[in-house]
């Protein structure tokens, strides 16, 4: 066990956990932030995506010790009222079916738009290819990202 200082959604907090614990399980089990989802545990599906220092990262495969003091944003920290432009675009296009992967999709989209405010369709496809949606809402995801880029 070790005490690790985390900067999550603008809040500094210390957790006392096995330093090898993936960030995902610290978020979900210790901090009650369950928006990031467990899908594969090996960075293959993107359901656990959060943003660290501006980059989309797979929290299921990042030991918590490696993210100490780094600026981390989860879906819960994206906006106070669910009105981040990407969230709004997701609602406008009524993207979700089951919804399980969508927090990860949204975080990947936010990271993409942070780097490329006006991505081409090809750039969207490349950036979003790591996030599986088993319900197959890919076209709406792409459309929502285009809408968010325009807003």
């Amino acid at each position: 066990m070790a005490t690790i200082n985390l900067n999550i959604n603008g809040k500094q907090q210390a957790v006392d956990v096995d330093p090898k614990t993936p960030l995902l399980w610290v978020l979900r089990d210790h901090l009650d932030l369950v928006g990031a989802k467990y899908g594969c545990g090996m960075a293959q599906c993107g359901a656990c995506t959060v943003i660290m220092e501006g980059n989309a990262v797979r929290s299921c495969s990042l030991p918590v010790s490696s993210v100490a003091n780094k600026k981390i944003t989860t879906i819960e920290g994206l906006s106070a009222n669910g009105d981040h432009p990407v969230q709004k675009a997701w609602l406008e296009h009524d993207v979700a079916q089951c919804g399980y992967c969508q927090a990860g999709q949204i975080m990947a989209a936010v990271a993409l738009l942070g780097k490329k405010p006006n991505p081409s369709d090809e750039e969207i496809e490349t950036a979003m290819n790591g996030n599986i949606c088993r319900c197959g809402t890919y076209l709406r995801i792409k459309a929502a990202i285009n809408t968010a880029a325009k807003s």
Partner: peptide
């Protein structure tokens, strides 16, 4: 056409799923 009644909860990461239960 009416939007998903749980849309807002989904895009804000609210605990909706069995996996999220505590």
């Amino acid at each position: 056409s009416q939007k998903n009644v749980e849309g807002k909860s989904i895009v804000t990461g609210k605990p909706l799923f069995g996996m999220d239960y505590k």
